[in-house]
Design a protein around this nucleic acid. Sequence first.
DNA 1: CTGGATCCTGATGGATACTG
DNA 2: CAGTATCCATCAGGATCCAG
Lengths: 105, 105
Amino acid sequence: MNPTHRSHCPIAQTLDIVGDKWTLLILRDALVFKRKSFAEFEQSSENIPTSLLAERLKRLVENGFLEKIPYQDKPVRYHYVPTDKGKAVIPIIRAMKKFGETHLA
Amino acid sequence: MNPTHRSHCPIAQTLDIVGDKWTLLILRDALVFKRKSFAEFEQSSENIPTSLLAERLKRLVENGFLEKIPYQDKPVRYHYVPTDKGKAVIPIIRAMKKFGETHLA
DNA sequence: CTGGATCCTGATGGATACTG
DNA sequence: CAGTATCCATCAGGATCCAG
């Protein structure tokens, strides 16, 4: 994910952020299915363990793909909503969707 | 990449195959930079360990993305060349390239 | 010398239980 | 509901070894 930081190839840099099994699925849920709360992501994302969901959400916020917005006090609750940068991954998701539909299963 | 096999979402299925740090980089090298031999991939792919390169190449062949073609006897040597299915990931790579160029670094 | 296979060790993933 | 903590299994990464 951010290991032996690699080349300046834009593909490699993109993969350093979204190149794992869960991150793009979470982004799909946020961008396509409009999931917002932790619980919504948890139910939607193919049984992702909560520990990984929490870590991925945090990383997506840190990297500026999602914004953590409080929407209620007592107790405080948050929504995770895509930023412009987050919305910019839609073409990647679309490309994967098309590939999967025409070349897999 | 074929773990607790997930949903039938085409995105999830695509990620089960290319959702790691190296696979798409290898495909980039094959498709964009026309790498063919093991040595070419090894030098090109941002210092990938040989063990991982060997494993990923094997998996890409098994999954029908690359074809292993002998091009010389004594000693026998192989080229890894993209199949039609392999070529179909170009749009994904292009989408990542564009994203990386406009939104990272 | 090319094309890997093997081995070791630390990091990450994944499932479940637990807490504010 | 929204996460942490924990524990074990698996994988990544690097070095080295081996076969043709």
